[in-house]
């Protein structure tokens, strides 16, 4: 038991590496927020463009969405970070992680927003247009408010799942929680920093997961 405490809850090690884990925590939060903002923004934009039903554009959107849904995020990050430099495009690990996860979230959220837009009945469009609203006004005041309501629970769950992928940034040397924890572990020869890192992730994500569960019961899809 003492041995276990010494390994996983070593107070000395905890105190020594606490600041590093806090730095990682801040960076993970920042990266996660950036991914959620750009990912959802881009996803909504693509879904809106898709609702204009330009055939060629829609085919391109569907292909791009499929590709980013099919490829593992880690593979995309590694492609951006290790492969693109050969084409003269270099980016930092942070940019590669942010861009990859944003594109993945955009792909998933485009599908969800689009499903929400389709779920709003045709009669609603027709009624709105016949009262003299323009296409943009119909979207903004009639369709989107209903669509977004339907899509909130799946969007939140997907956003959480993808934001957790910020830990993948450790593979391309982003100084987020996991990197800080593994570095500290190898310096100290003690796995306590991993415990700290795990706690940091729980502090960050547990409230969001519980919030997501609450939203799910609150805004459940009415079947």
């Amino acid at each position: 038991m003492d041995n276990f405490l010494f390994s996983f809850f070593n107070l000395d090690v905890m105190v020594r590496y606490f600041p590093a884990i806090v730095d990682g925590f801040i960076l993970t939060t920042y990266l996660g927020l950036a991914v959620v903002l750009t990912g959802l923004g881009l996803g909504l934009t693509l879904a809106l463009i898709r609702s204009l039903r330009w055939r060629v554009v829609n085919v391109l959107i569907v292909i791009a969405v499929d590709v980013f849904r099919a490829l593992p995020p880690l593979v995309i990050i590694i492609l951006f970070y290790f492969a693109l430099p050969s084409a003269g495009v270099t980016m930092t690990g942070f940019t590669a992680t942010w861009l990859s996860l944003s594109l993945v979230l955009a792909a998933f959220s485009e599908e969800i927003f689009w499903a929400g837009i389709l779920a709003v009945q045709k009669g609603q469009w027709e009624a709105a247009r016949s009262t003299g609203l323009g296409l943009g006004q119909t979207l903004a005041y009639v369709v989107l408010p209903q669509a977004v309501r339907l899509t909130i629970p799946p969007l939140v769950n997907r956003a959480i799942a993808i934001t957790k992928g910020t830990a993948l940034g450790s593979v391309v040397a982003v100084q987020e929680i996991l990197t800080q924890a593994t570095t500290a572990q190898s310096f100290s020869g003690n796995p306590t920093p991993l415990t700290l890192g795990a706690l940091a992730y729980l502090i960050l994500f547990l409230p969001v997961v519980i919030f997501g569960r609450w939203l799910e019961t609150r805004f459940a899809w009415r079947r």
């Binding site: 957790k164 830990a167 415990t195």
Partner: peptide
């Protein structure tokens, strides 16, 4: 669900 799978894996493998 709150735990990133990669963190879980590293914790198990290295811890």
């Amino acid at each position: 669900r709150a735990f990133p799978p990669l963190v879980l894996l590293i914790f198990i493998y290295f811890g």
